[in-house]
């Protein structure tokens, strides 16, 4: 565990907590894409299938449980909670997530490190995580007015990706045989998707103005 990996995990955790805070205390999920949240739930479900069979550390298992639990509870809140679900921007959040899942599944069947059930699903989760933010970014673009918590949520998620790239660079130079092209390319694609959002986030922060995306 290096400082970049820890910082990445902590920003990831913080992003989830910010979203849960918004949903739990303000009882609102306005501006949050259910499609993206469902994709994350699928990402964690397929990636952490090995939770019972492969033990790395208490830290890892605990974080896996937190990410699984939080992603499914966010989906549950948005779909079934009587007040939260009324704040969901159903008509704007129309991205078809099947269009993301099918290509990711096909790609995972074609390009993987090992052709086993767990490994293909792990690879599928990497590809899907890379594009899972797209429905959220499309929703932001459509609603344009972004409240602070939603903006912070996406900012923290992007930060998590950035730290993971630093972690990979660090591990590549410090650990022998640490080469994972699939993870790196999927992670890089994912981080690049945030670039545009980051640009406007910093612009609004610099000018001390509310975050607004161009039409």
């Amino acid at each position: 565990m290096n400082i970049f990996r820890l910082a990445g995990d902590m920003t990831h955790l913080a992003s989830v907590l910010v979203l849960l805070l918004k949903i739990h205390t303000i009882k609102s999920c306005a501006g949050v894409s259910l499609k993206t949240q469902e994709l994350y739930a699928i990402v964690f479900a397929t990636r952490y299938l090995d939770i019972l069979t492969s033990f790395v550390s208490i830290y890892n298992t605990l974080m896996k449980l937190i990410f699984l639990g939080s992603s499914f509870s966010i989906v549950w809140y948005m779909k079934y909670h009587k007040t939260v679900r009324r704040t969901y921007d159903r008509d704007q959040d129309t991205f078809r997530h099947w269009f993301l899942m099918l290509p990711c599944l096909l790609l995972a069947l074609l390009i993987h490190e090992k052709f086993t059930f767990f490994e293909v699903l792990w690879t599928f989760s990497l590809y899907l995580e890379a594009v899972a933010i797209l429905p959220q970014l499309v929703l932001l673009q459509r609603t344009r007015n972004i409240d602070n918590l939603t903006g912070q949520y996406i900012f923290l998620l992007g930060g998590y990706r950035g730290f993971y790239i630093l972690n990979w660079i660090y591990r590549y130079f410090t650990e022998p045989h640490y080469v994972h092209w699939i993870t790196w390319i999927a992670g890089l694609v994912q981080t690049l998707l945030y670039a545009d959002f980051f640009y406007y986030y910093f612009l609004s922060w610099k000018n001390n103005k509310k975050l607004q995306l161009p039409a």
Binding site: K64, E175, H177, T183
Partner: peptide, 10 residues
């Protein structure tokens, strides 16, 4: 690559 070390990340 060593698959096991890949899976020590989240």
């Amino acid at each position: 690559g060593d698959i096991a070390s890949q899976h020590d990340e989240l």
